[in-house]
């Protein structure tokens, strides 16, 4: 095994060509190291991207916030910029694993490991992010749904593609996002369920809302029926409750021996979706 410490995006692209698809991009490494040991992700080389200066930044560019793919979850959770515009993302990023894990792991890694209930990716999902992927073929932009290929399976091929950054739009005054986690334990555990929402509300009426939930399918799943129902309606407890029930239409949770049976998840999904919607309202001073 070879260990390549990349110092620029070009270094990574060069390493992709030289290793002919037999290398893997290594960011935080908190998942990859375990996967490699269990034989799940064999490779001849690791390309360490954590020293690439341009990937290590969180910055404001025009109406966008850019989060480099080598930014750690702790850096996101503590970023003044993120806390100002998207406290829910800071919360989600600050919930993954433990502080030690967040000090190494990245938001992009949380997306690429493709665990449906990954808290940081989940908090990001309703913000409609642009995931910027570069390879020797050029640059492409994926939306959240396009990034997931299946359960635990990413659409991004880390042997030839590098996520450079994640871009999110700076919200307007009346746009807020939320993240709710139903958990057995705060640290060192995946949630039983999580839900996130982002909405724009004008005069108490929802202009648009995006609601995501997990683990109820592949990746963060959109609650389309609930979103449709809420659009154009007042943000209040009754409507949020109704939306919670409608969320079940887009959800197909499985039973887990630890983190809740299908029945339990179906019984509580409406509650946490309702709470995610109401939390948006609370941030807007409506509830």
């Amino acid at each position: 095994m070879k260990y390549i410490i990349a110092e620029s995006v070009d270094d990574v692209l060069k390493a992709f060509s030289e290793t002919e698809g037999k290398a893997m991009v290594l960011a935080g490494g908190t998942d990859l190291v375990l996967d490699a040991e269990s034989g799940k992700k064999p490779s001849d080389a690791w390309i360490d991207i954590m020293r690439i200066p341009e990937l290590r930044e969180i910055k404001k560019e025009g109406d966008r916030i850019i989060i480099g793919s080598a930014v750690t979850l702790t850096e996101i959770a503590r970023s003044e910029l993120i806390k100002k515009y998207y406290p829910s993302l800071a919360k989600g990023a600050g919930t993954v694993g433990s502080l030690q894990i967040r000090n190494a792991a990245t938001l992009t890694g949380n997306i690429i490991s493709a665990q449906p209930a990954a808290d940081a990716a989940m908090a990001l999902a309703p913000l409609d992010p642009e995931i910027v992927v570069v390879s020797n073929e050029g640059e492409k932009i994926l939306n959240m749904e396009e990034a997931y290929a299946g359960f635990g399976k990413s659409a991004i091929d880390s042997s030839k593609e590098l996520v450079k950054e994640v871009r999110i739009r700076i919200p307007e005054e009346n746009e807020k996002a939320s993240f709710i986690r139903l958990e057995l334990r705060k640290s060192l555990s995946l949630p039983m369920l999580n839900a996130a929402a982002m909405a724009k509300v004008e005069n108490g009426v929802i202009k648009y809302i995006r609601i995501t939930m997990a683990p109820v399918g592949v990746g963060p799943k959109r609650a389309r029926a609930a979103e449709e129902f809420l659009t154009g309606k007042e943000l209040n407890e009754a409507n949020a409750g109704e939306a919670g029930q409608l969320a079940l239409k887009d959800a197909n949770p499985r039973s887990n021996p630890l983190r809740g049976s299908k029945e339990y998840r179906e019984a509580t999904l409406p509650v946490i979706v309702e709470r995610a919607v109401m939390e948006v309202g609370a941030q807007l001073g409506l509830a």
Binding site: R185, K186, L188, S189, L190
Partner: peptide, 12 residues
């Protein structure tokens, strides 16, 4: 392992 056995952690 500890990830799927819910003994209490410091923050809980």
């Amino acid at each position: 392992g500890f990830h799927n056995y819910m003994l209490p952690t410091a923050d809980d």
